[in-house]
Amino acid sequence: MASIRQRSGVWQARVRRKGFPDEVNSFATKAEAQMWARCIESLIDKGTHFSLNQSKDWLLTDVLERYMQEVTPSKRGAKREAEGIRFMQRQKMAAYSMERLTPSVIANYRDERLKSVSAGTIIRELSILSGIITHARKEWSLSVANPCALVRKPPTPQGRCRLLNTNEESRLLAELRPIGRRNRWMTPLVILALETAMRRGELLALRWENVHLQHQTAFLPMTKNGTGRTVPLSKKAVAVLAELPRASDARVFPLTDMAMHAAFRKACARAHIVDLHFHDLRHTATSRLAEKLPNVIELAAVTGHQTIQMLKRYYHPKAEVLAQKLG
């Protein structure tokens, strides 16, 4: 049982359990002390508790490893997060104990990383690290402050506004045409991306059982937002899909992410197209669809954006087109 007592103006909670060292912590209110004590007792009963005194001696790499083993696998982006955690485990800051992991240590890591990566990358890394430490504080009773909260993050970079123009599109499709060992799936993949504004992952995960050519729709059971949505298909998109052969694994595009990325990058190089990412096709498609669907609610229903603010990041109207509408 836990004992709660007031001492020197604060409430002290002590948890005693046979086979475990005593756990002691102080709080401003009795309610907080009781809540903490119940949490510690629950963790001991579940067998997932480690001593508060010992937790201060834990290295950051130990916390990262435990999080990667226990929490990361349950996430949809588990693979990418695990890669980021493994990278942080190889850095100098991972050797610090949690008690000595100060904001200055995190700031030094930030400054070194900014020499080789973009501000967006370091913002994501600090967000992952902060989330891991916060989880350890809440779920594992790690009795240290979160140093990431006191570290200044780099300014958020402006979103990309690279669009594929019609001339580049013609050159790109010409270079994607299946000749010799070129991938036969890339041309229809790019056309469908430009017709539907679907994300790369959504296209590669699309299955024939969810494609309904007669109704001109494609159902996506799971999207980036964590929900499903039905994508309307243009007549051109339906025609492209109708001509595709059926792969043995029931996917519309039986490609790996790496194979798709390599084929797209090489085609851009052959077509002399500079600074074009596959995700830029989603920007291009959204801007084109906006001319056909001036109603933003309908446009968001097609593209899958949940907020108008996020949709604005993908809609890049041309000034000359807007001028023509003004008259």
Score class of each variant (00 low, 15 high):
93 M>T: 00
94 A>R: 06
94 A>V: 08
95 A>F: 10
95 A>M: 14
96 Y>R: 12
96 Y>H: 15
97 S>Y: 09
97 S>Q: 14
97 S>A: 09
97 S>K: 15
97 S>P: 07
98 M>P: 08
98 M>I: 08
98 M>D: 08
98 M>V: 08
99 E>R: 15
99 E>I: 14
100 R>V: 03
100 R>P: 06
101 L>F: 13
101 L>G: 11
103 P>R: 11
104 S>C: 03
104 S>I: 07
106 I>P: 10
108 N>M: 15
108 N>T: 15
110 R>T: 10
110 R>F: 07
113 R>Q: 14
113 R>K: 13
113 R>L: 13
114 L>T: 04
114 L>Q: 05
115 K>D: 09
116 S>G: 02
116 S>F: 07
117 V>I: 14
118 S>V: 05
118 S>K: 12
119 A>Y: 01
119 A>F: 01
119 A>E: 10
120 G>T: 05
121 T>N: 09
121 T>Q: 09
122 I>S: 03
122 I>K: 01
123 I>V: 04
123 I>E: 04
123 I>G: 02
123 I>Q: 03
125 E>I: 01
125 E>V: 04
126 L>S: 00
126 L>P: 05
127 S>M: 05
128 I>A: 06
128 I>Y: 11
128 I>C: 03
129 L>R: 00
129 L>C: 00
130 S>H: 05
130 S>T: 02
130 S>Y: 02
130 S>M: 01
131 G>N: 06
132 I>G: 06
132 I>Y: 06
132 I>V: 12
132 I>T: 05
133 I>Q: 03
134 T>A: 15
135 H>Q: 06
135 H>M: 07
135 H>D: 09
136 A>G: 03
138 K>A: 13
138 K>W: 07
142 L>A: 06
142 L>T: 08
143 S>G: 10
144 V>I: 12
144 V>D: 08
145 A>K: 13
145 A>L: 11
147 P>G: 00
147 P>Y: 00
148 C>P: 07
149 A>Q: 13
150 L>H: 10
152 R>D: 08
153 K>D: 10
154 P>I: 01
155 P>Y: 06
157 P>L: 00
159 G>S: 12
161 C>H: 15
162 R>L: 02
163 L>W: 05
163 L>V: 11
165 N>E: 11
167 N>F: 11
169 E>T: 13
169 E>L: 13
170 S>P: 00
170 S>T: 11
173 L>C: 08
174 A>Y: 02
